[in-house]
Every structure is written in C-alpha cells, then in structure tokens.
Write a protein that binds this DNA or RNA. Structure first.
Lengths: 247, 247
DNA sequence: CGGACCGTTGAGTAGAGTCAATGTGGGTGG
DNA sequence: CCACCCACATTGACTCTACTCAACGGTCCG
C-alpha cells in the first residue's frame, strides 16, 4: 500500500458520510499521516490515555474494549480499514476505553491539531466527521438492543450480518457473501456478552442450518435472507444512505 | 418557568461542555424556541421520523427506546432538563429510534436551520454540541458494558448512581443524596435488560441492605459509597469535568 | 516434538425468566 | 364520600437459557 492509497482509504470512508468537493479532497491529501504497524493483540490506545492524534485504520482490523477490574471484558465494536475508532478523542481528551489490534494491522495517526485546522477551514469535512461519531453512537445503541433484548442466536447472527455489510460498504468484501473474519470465539463472546462455550454452540447451530461457513479467518453467509431474519438485522442504523447495504 | 429560563437551561448544560463567552451566550438567547407540553408516556419523536428541529428538555424527563417487532423494548437512556436527546438528528436525518416522555414534560423545539447557522458562526458552540453527542456515545458504551458483563445487581445500582450524579450536575437534585425518579420498574427492566419481576427483587435487596430509599417518584441513596462499589460506578464516562477540550 | 492457542464436547448448575396471583395507592365518576 | 378501577408493585412456584468446570482435539509454529 503506497502513501497516496492511505488517504484514499479515508476519503472513501468520508464519502459514505458526505459528498466531498475536489478542494476538500485536496485538503485531506495534505494531512500529515504517521503510519505505524502493530502486531496482533496489541493495544493501540489504552483507557486513561490522552492522545494528541486520531488513528485511521489502513489495513487489518481493530476493536474497542473496556476491561473491568475482575477481568471481565466488553468489546464495544470492531473497526475495519477506513474507520477512525478514536475520533471522539478530538473532543474528550481522556480515553474511557481501549483500542487494540485483532490481527496485524497498520494505522495512520493524524494529529488533532491538523484535524481541528481542517475542520475550521472546511465545514463539510467537520460535519462529515461529526456525522461519523454520530453513526458510531447509532451502532452502540443497536448493540445495546442486542445485549439487552436479544437471544444469543440473534446477537451472533446480527454481528455477522453487520460485518459483511460494512466490509461491502467500503469495497473490502471478498465477494457478495464473503469477508474477512479474524475474530476468535472468545472475542465474539466478549462482544456479545456470552461465554466462549456458548458462542461455539450457537455457531454450530448456524452452520448446521446451512446459514454460514465460518473459519480460518473468513466468513461466508450462505443464506443471507434467513440469517437476516434470524438476526432481525436492519441496516438502517448504519446510515449508509443510499449505498445499498444488501448482499 | 418563563421564556428566559428556557434558554438558561440550555446554556447551563452547554457550560458543562465548554466555556462560553458572553457573545456566545447572547447568540444562544437569540435561538427561536417553540415550547410544547407533553403528557406522560407520549412519543415526542418516532422511529422513521425526519425531524427538522431538535428538542431540548425543559421540565420533566424523557427516554429513548427502540421497539422490536415482537414487542420487546430496549430503553437506551434517560434524559433530564437541559439534555437534547435528538441532537444527532442534525446529522442523520432519519430517526432510528423513538423518544418519549416518562412524566408530563415540556420541551423546546429548535429548528435545525437555526442550529446550523449558529454552528457556522460560533465554532465553540458547534464543538460543544459535537462534544455532547460524543458524551452521549460514551454513555451508550458504558450501558453496553453493563448489559454485556454485569449482573442484575450491578446494573441496577449503576443506573441509580448515574441518575443522581447527572441531576446534581445540572443543579436539579433535591439534595446531596436525593433526586426525582419517575421510572417504573417495568421501564427499568426494559432499560437494564431484565424482567419487571427480577427488577423488583433486586430493588428489594438494595433496600434491605439499607443502600437506597426508592418510591413515590423519588430516589434517595442512603449509602453512596457502598452503592457505588456494588455498581462499580466510575463517573469518568460522563465527562462532567467540562472544558476538557478547547481546540 | 512440544507447547500455545483455539475450537469442541459433556455434565451439572444458577441467575434470570415465565406464569400467575395478590397487594396497594391514587384517581375518578356516580 | 365512597366504590371501583387501573397501573404499578410484590410474591411464589417452576422453567430454561446460558454459565461453570473440566477435559479433549486440532493446527500452527518455533
């Protein structure tokens, strides 16, 4: 991946949030990016940090999580290339959770100062970024609905639907029904509020019913419509606006 | 409550998010507010709506919720005077959830256009509002942690701690340990992912242990420190320290 | 070849749900 | 003013989803 592709990833993501003029794209290309590689399972940001930059995912995959004192861990979201998982640090200085890599990952750090200057000069970009934090919040709300109201089967099906749709939205799905899935069953459990054992049993049910093929870092949804029904998945909350979200 | 107090409620809230100059406060006072009263249990906004204005809570209390097809309901947050529960509608046009009154409530509607003009002219206010949506997201994340990882006892204790702290932050607590609590056990259940029956049993445990007095629309936390420990409550996520970030 | 990590399986348990009935206080209409 | 109603709170008995504990299997990799 060469440097100009780095910012293209960001532009492509922002274009899912707002239409950008050539001038605005040019301004984005002027952002100073510091690229850094992480191995799998490394913290990129930790609870309590006061970062002076935001991190844009270029390759790989990251997740946000909060660890409780007694070792319980809640994973709050998975992030794919083009996402800026700590955009909120622009406005709340202290991280109230951590961000870590799921697999070997490269990220680009963008100084808060550069982003603030960009926002001051280009309100469209500022609004697109604001919109991104708002869509983030919409995803949290929907995960809350899952954790509070849905069964283990519905929750698991939902996260599978969500990831395929999001990969497709940024053009990174392998094909119409297949995408990367480097998430272990333990991590899935921490995301869904379930134990590893139970996640395993539910996955086997989905496999047995012919809905998915899951393994070796890859997810294939063999029967989108039935999985969608089982998950009660409705992509409205992703606010992908017009960009069709149906595999 | 007279008209000038309406906007004061908003100013007081925004001052928990950023320091405001006199000029900025003056600009806020120029906002056109349309005040409207709602009875208890009325929808103020519904999933699917495309509102052209934001609603500021003046008196009473509201909550956000999402209803699933089969009648299950997840409540996503409770909002008190000074809060703008649908601020995100400025940037995502279609409501992906509903907002309703818990008790008789008055709200002020502020046209999106006025807010956008204000934001264009006063970056500090725009950033304060952005920050508000980000703090909102932080609250969703913490609720997620509760729903995913915590026991019924921890969750219930947590929501009680949160509400008292938030009432105190905007000066609306009755005293140091008492605030309004017009939430039924059914509603608490829908917020915490529990049944009414179980909520009731947990409340009784907390009462039996002398931690709270709860009833008749009022909550008194008799032993803050023990309740806080039981909830593992840490108010960091509310980001009430204000003015953290001034780009 | 051995360890580490992840996935899989089985047996027993418990936290929370379900169903159903009863208690209680505030509001309302006759 | 009283009787009734209704929403909310409370209680008990029973059930079930998901958890716990524990062991075993597969695969990658040094």
């Amino acid at each position: 991946m060469n440097p100009s592709q780095h910012v293209d990833r960001l532009i492509r993501k922002l274009e899912t949030l707002a239409a950008l003029s050539d001038e605005e794209k040019q301004a984005l290309r002027g952002l100073p990016l510091t690229v850094k590689a992480f191995k799998a399972d490394q913290d990129i940001l930790r609870e309590g940090d006061n970062p002076a930059e935001c991190c844009l995912v270029l390759e790989g995959m990251v997740f946000r999580y909060l660890m409780l004192d007694d070792g319980r861990r809640q994973i709050m979201g998975f992030y794919i290339p083009g996402d800026i998982p700590d955009l909120q640090s622009l406005h709340i200085t202290t991280m109230d959770h951590s961000v870590a890599s799921l697999v070997p990952t490269t990220v680009a750090f963008i100084p808060h100062q550069s982003l603030n200057e960009l926002n001051a000069r280009h309100p469209t970009i500022a609004n697109a970024l604001w919109r991104d934090t708002i869509v983030d919040a919409a995803m949290f709300r929907l995960w809350m609905v899952g954790l509070g109201q849905k069964s283990a089967h519905e929750r698991l099906a939902h996260v599978l639907c969500e990831l395929l749709v999001r990969f497709k939205a940024v053009g990174l799905a392998e094909d119409e029904q297949t995408c990367a899935f480097p998430i272990t069953q333990t991590e899935l459990g921490d995301a869904l509020g379930l134990t590893t054992v139970h996640v395993n049993r539910v996955i086997q049910d989905l496999r047995r019913d012919g809905l998915i093929t899951l393994g070796r870092g890859s997810l294939c949804i063999n029967d989108w419509e039935r999985l969608r029904q089982r998950a009660k998945f409705n992509p409205l909350y992703l606010h992908l606006d017009g960009r069709e979200a149906r595999p």
